[in-house]
C-alpha cells in the first residue's frame, strides 16, 4: 500500500516537472540558477500558475464526479452528463449580458447560482423517474444539458455572442497566467470540505432510506454536496472552460480498485484526476508543438477512450 502511494507520488512529481518544462518558449534553467528575472517571471507568472490550475481543476472535477455519482446513485454521471457544464455556461452568459461591467466575483456568483438551481432541478427530475428508467440518468442528463444549452444559444444568438461562447465551452489552459485564474482556488476549500464530509457522501450513496435510518440529515447532505459541486464546476468553467470525462472516468477506475468508501477513495480520486489532466495537458502541448491543442479536446479524447475501454472491459 505504502509502495503504491510512493509510486503515485513519484509519478505526479515527474509529471509536474515535465509540465513546468514544456512550453512555447524553452525555460532557461540556467537562468533560474543565476537568478535571471526573465526566467523567474516565465516560471512564476505562467508555468507555475498553469501547473497549479491543472492540479486543482483535475482533482476538483474528479471529486465532483464522485460526489454526483453518489448523490444521483448512478455510475455514469458527472458535470457534463447532469447539465452542470451547460448551466455554468448559461450563468456566465447571463452575467456577461445583464451586468457587463461586473467583476469576476459577481460572474462567479451568478454562474454558481444557476449551476446550483439547475442541479437541484435535475435531481428533482431524476428522483421522479421510475426505477426501471434509472439506467437512463446520464442520457437524460445529456438531453437536459441540451435544453439548457438551447436556452443559452438562443440568448447568445440575440446578442451575437454565439461563437465566443463556443470558446468558453472548450477547456483551455493556455490563457492561464498570473491574475487570471485565481478564482479557481475556490475549489480548494470545496475539495477539503468534501474530504471532511466524505463519510456522509458514502452514506448518501446508499439511498435516502438507509441514510435516514442511519441518522443522517439527507437533504442537508445532498444540498452540501451539490453546493460543493457547483462551486468547483463554475469556478472551472469561468477560468479555464469545460473539460469532459475527468469526473466520469477517474471515479470509475478508482472504484474498481479502492471501492466506494469515499473516506478511502476520495484522495485517490483527487490524485487520479490531477494526473489525468496533467497527462492530457502535456499531450496537448506536445502534439502540435509549438501550438497547443486545448485540454477540453485532449481530455475528451483520452478520457473518452479510457471510458470506452472500461465499458468494454467490464462487459467481458
Amino acid at each position: 500500500m505504502i509502495r503504491s502511494h510512493l509510486n503515485w507520488a513519484v509519478a505526479l512529481g515527474v509529471l509536474c516537472v515535465l509540465s513546468l518544462l514544456i512550453g512555447a518558449r524553452a525555460l532557461p534553467w540556467s537562468g533560474l540558477w543565476q537568478g535571471s528575472p526573465e526566467a523567474w517571471l516565465t516560471l512564476t507568472a505562467s508555468r507555475l500558475p498553469r501547473l497549479l490550475a491543472l492540479l486543482v481543476t483535475g482533482a476538483g472535477l474528479a471529486v465532483c464526479g464522485l460526489i454526483l455519482q453518489h448523490i444521483v446513485r448512478n455510475r455514469f454521471v458527472e458535470p457534463a452528463t447532469t447539465g452542470g457544464l451547460d448551466a455554468a455556461k448559461l450563468g456566465i452568459l447571463l452575467a456577461l449580458i445583464s451586468l457587463p461591467d461586473a467583476g469576476v466575483g459577481v460572474r462567479m456568483f451568478i454562474a454558481l447560482s444557476v449551476c446550483l438551481v439547475s442541479s437541484l432541478l435535475f435531481l428533482a427530475l431524476v428522483r421522479r423517474l421510475p426505477a426501471q428508467q434509472t439506467v437512463l440518468v446520464p442520457v437524460i442528463g445529456l438531453m437536459y444539458g441540451g435544453v439548457l444549452s438551447a436556452v443559452a444559444e438562443g440568448y447568445a444568438y440575440r446578442h451575437n455572442l454565439l461563437q465566443s461562447m463556443q470558446g468558453w465551452l472548450l477547456g483551455d489552459f493556455s490563457k492561464v497566467v498570473q491574475g487570471s485564474y485565481e478564482v479557481l482556488y475556490l475549489s480548494v476549500p470545496a475539495l477539503l470540505l468534501s474530504y471532511l464530509f466524505a463519510q456522509r457522501f458514502t452514506v448518501v450513496g446508499m439511498g435516502e432510506g438507509i441514510a435516514t435510518s442511519l441518522g443522517l440529515n439527507y437533504p442537508a447532505s445532498v444540498a452540501l454536496g451539490l453546493v460543493l459541486v457547483a462551486v468547483t464546476v463554475s469556478a472551472t468553467v469561468i477560468s479555464v472552460g469545460a473539460i469532459p470525462f475527468v469526473g466520469l472516468v477517474i471515479p470509475n477506475l478508482i472504484a474498481l480498485r479502492h471501492g466506494d468508501n469515499l473516506r478511502r477513495s476520495l484522495p485517490w480520486v483527487a490524485l487520479g484526476g490531477a494526473v489525468l489532466l496533467l497527462v492530457c495537458d502535456i499531450l496537448g502541448r506536445l502534439l502540435i508543438y509549438p501550438f497547443e491543442v486545448p485540454i477540453g479536446l485532449t481530455a475528451g479524447i483520452v478520457g473518452g477512450a479510457l471510458f470506452l475501454g472500461l465499458l468494454l472491459w467490464q462487459r467481458r
Binding site: T81, P138, G296, G304, L311
Partner: peptide, 22 residues
C-alpha cells in the same frame, strides 16, 4: 450498453466539433 457508448461518442464528437469551430 449501446446507449452508453452513444453517450460517450456524443460527448467526444461534441468536443471535436467545438475545437474545429474555434
Amino acid at each position: 450498453f449501446l446507449l452508453l457508448v452513444g453517450l460517450v461518442l456524443t460527448l467526444l464528437l461534441g468536443s471535436l466539433t467545438q475545437f474545429v469551430q474555434l
